[in-house]
Nucleic acid binder design. Structure first.
Lengths: 331, 331
DNA sequence: ATGAAAGCGCTAACAC
DNA sequence: GTGTTAGCGCTTTCAT
């Protein structure tokens, strides 16, 4: 049936060990025999069995990736960064969607460990004590991408969400709106909280009293943005600047505003968060916080390779730089 | 170190075989011993090693997924459909990006087979004889998603691209433009060709002479759309309807048109293709061909499970229904 | 209903 | 530079 390393050894008149050596590029093989082996590999169409190799070597050269939703324009970009670096280091990726469902997340972590992944990249709203416990059931290294562990115990790659939100809010304030409206998602995930903290701090630093009416909680998607815009317009007298916690939300808000005859940015300014490809796919183009999604994924994967190689890393919680990209949704 | 099935057997005073049976839900175990085994599994924190299991059973419960680019809004939706059904059938997914690079594609197929995937979902511009040869190096079942094999030899899930393009074009013609402009990607991938064929047929059926000036080749992305719009406007006297081969391209065209003071749909009508989430994230909202991406992925995966179970399938080349979604970019 | 034992295909000492 | 030989942790006949 399928040809094994044993068949190759027999046909080439060498031992399995020698075949294994040439397959794995071990230099301790005489060029002549290497060639001989290579030839019979070619002739027999031998293909190494990675599962057997994994069992014997205890390395599968695959890493697990737990992601909230691969169809999200945000996370799929992260995933691309992860896979590119994984490929560069000869790893494959096992990808699973969690939908940010805690039980599913916990189950998936276990599942990845069963599959003997060499490492794990985790993305989610945030990490709880239970997650950490689950990670600890194995000695396999884990890295968080665009995900916060409040205790900083797990290696991670993020941006400074609080500072980024602070800066975005300040931009709006400096443009003339003392207390912008903040629209974000419900729930108090760490990332979420940091953004809100940054927003609040900026308002406070501008000597404004916080007004909870101007803090709107909804979902982070387009439709919610449209709805939020409607709600805002119906407030009648409302601040003329809006900070949305995601680009998609911002697009929904812009279009919702426009549908009600509000001009962006002349009547109301809007800034988003992430700088997904959507940001340039609207009119007016979106001013937003640049979060380097691809790089976060890539750096997280790179970090993971270091742990998998047992290299020492200086800083296991890396903060990537962000910036504010001014486009046409603000003045 | 790690606890194995052998440890559980010893601690529970049963054989490995019995532990294996309870782990795999084999009914041939007395309830009492099952409970005893379950307890010691719990106590020892035993976690089955899927690699060892894979080697022994020759089933890895993982399927390979080769995808052009997971960060694409189109393909990531397909991937989600694939993963959901995979999860439903207890499979995991190994995901790799090919960038539609043939050598990479061929290498990835081989890589997936090395990893002993139980099945393979392939997405790409199209299948060549070499791809088929590569698939044939293994007996592992393969299914194509949103990908055409001209010979129909490989199981696949698609829509009728030609008919869909024909209908979209006809809509434009019936709205008053005898020979719309067609904007699509360069190259003659099967999917691409079918769309173009459908377009041409619709024009011919409307008793129009084909005008190659009105068939524009570019990339399928937003920026190309903006550029195409510029080119079109500069034509001066041009048809007042445009059929774009993807939604993203259509968005670029719409905005490019608007940037030149052209009103959509009153001055020029635009229809897209795919009905990605982008279609509702523009003003005017986009009239487009609905391609059920998620379903294509889901059905392809479902189809694959049938082959993996050696079930007989009646039609291995499934064509899912499409439709035209009329929104506001057409009259 | 349960156990014994032979692999699955490969790597990794260790010996020569 | 090459071969021998234990396993890796599990499933799967085949007995009993």
């Amino acid at each position: 049936m399928t040809v094994t390393i044993y068949d190759v050894a027999r046909e080439a008149n060498v031992s399995m060990a020698t075949v294994s050596r040439v397959v794995n590029g071990n230099p301790n093989v005489k060029p002549a025999t290497r060639k001989k082996v290579l030839n019979t590999i070619e002739r027999l169409g031998y293909r190494p069995n990675a599962v057997a190799r994994g069992l014997a070597s205890k390395r599968t050269t695959t890493v697990g990736v737990i992601i909230p939703d691969i169809s999200s324009i945000f996370f799929s970009e992260l995933a691309r960064g992860i896979d590119d670096i994984a490929t560069m280091y000869k790893y494959n990726i096992i990808l699973s969607n969690s939908d940010q469902n805690k039980e599913k997340e916990l189950r998936l972590i276990n599942n990845m460990f069963e599959k003997q992944v060499d490492g794990l990249i985790y993305m989610g709203a945030g990490i709880t004590e239970e997650h950490v416990q689950q990670f600890k059931t194995s000695s396999v290294p884990v890295a968080l991408a665009a995900t916060i562990d409040p205790t900083d115990a797990i290696p991670s790659v993020n941006i400074d969400y609080e500072k980024a939100a602070y800066e975005a809010t300040t931009l709006l304030i400096e443009n003339g709106t003392n207390h912008p409206i903040y629209v974000s998602e419900e729930g108090d995930s760490p990332v979420n909280s940091k953004k809100l903290d940054g927003f609040k701090q900026a308002v406070v630093d501008a000597n404004q009293e916080l007004n909870e009416d101007y803090i709107i909680h909804t979902k982070l998607n387009y439709k919610s943005g449209e709805e939020a815009a409607k709600k805002i317009v119906e407030m009648g007298n409302y601040p003329k600047a809006i900070f949305a916690a995601s680009d998609e939300l911002a697009l929904g808000i812009i279009h919702g505003l426009q549908d009600h005859g509000v001009d962006v940015p002349n009547d109301v300014e809007v800034v988003g968060f992430d700088n997904t490809r959507l940001a340039t796919m609207v009119r007016p183009t979106l001013t937003t916080v640049v979060q380097p999604m691809y790089d976060i994924g890539a750096v997280a994967m790179r970090l993971l390779t270091k742990f998998m190689n047992k290299e020492t890393v200086d800083d296991q919680n890396v903060i990537l730089p962000h910036q504010i990209m001014r486009r046409n949704s603000t003045k």
